[in-house]
Simulated assay, not measured.
Amino acid sequence: MTQVIFRPRRIRVLAGILAVVFVAVFVVVAVLLKRSDTGVVFHTSDQVAMIGIGLLLAAGALWSTWPRVRADAEGIEVRNLLGARRYGWDVVRRVSFPDGAAWARLELPADEYVPMLAIQAIDRDRAVAAMRELRRLHREAGSG
Rank of each mutant, 00 (worst) to 15 (best):
A141D: 02
L56F: 09
V23P: 00
L81S: 14
A130W: 00
R94S: 12
A73G: 12
R132W: 07
V13P: 02
M116S: 04
R86D: 03
I119R: 06
A118Y: 01
L57T: 05
S45G: 11
G83S: 11
L117F: 06
T2D: 12
E74F: 13
G54D: 01
L32K: 15
R9C: 14
V69K: 04
W89K: 10
Q47T: 08
D123A: 11
E74I: 14
V92D: 02
A129L: 12
F42H: 09
R132F: 05
L56I: 09
V78Q: 01
M1S: 11
V13Q: 12
G144V: 04
A129T: 05
V13D: 05
A15F: 06
D111K: 15
V25D: 01
V31S: 09
M131Y: 01
R86L: 10
G100H: 08
I53T: 01
V21K: 06
R94P: 00
S36V: 15
M50L: 12
L108A: 09
R105W: 02
S36G: 13
Q47P: 01
P98R: 10
A71V: 03
A19N: 03
R135G: 02
V13W: 08
V40W: 15
L106H: 01
S143F: 06
W63L: 11
A19V: 03
L56A: 09
R132T: 09
A73C: 10
S143L: 11
A19D: 02
W63K: 15
R10V: 01
I53L: 14
L14I: 12
D90I: 15
A61Q: 05
E77T: 15
R136S: 02
V41E: 08
R10S: 09
V91Q: 13
G54V: 04
G54S: 03
A127E: 00
R105F: 00
F22N: 06
A15V: 05
V114A: 03
V23S: 04
D90T: 13
E112V: 11
R93I: 07
D111W: 12
L82M: 14
L108P: 02
R70Y: 04
L55E: 01
K34L: 12
R86F: 12
L137A: 01
T44E: 13
L106E: 00
M1F: 13
R79S: 07
L117T: 06
H43I: 09
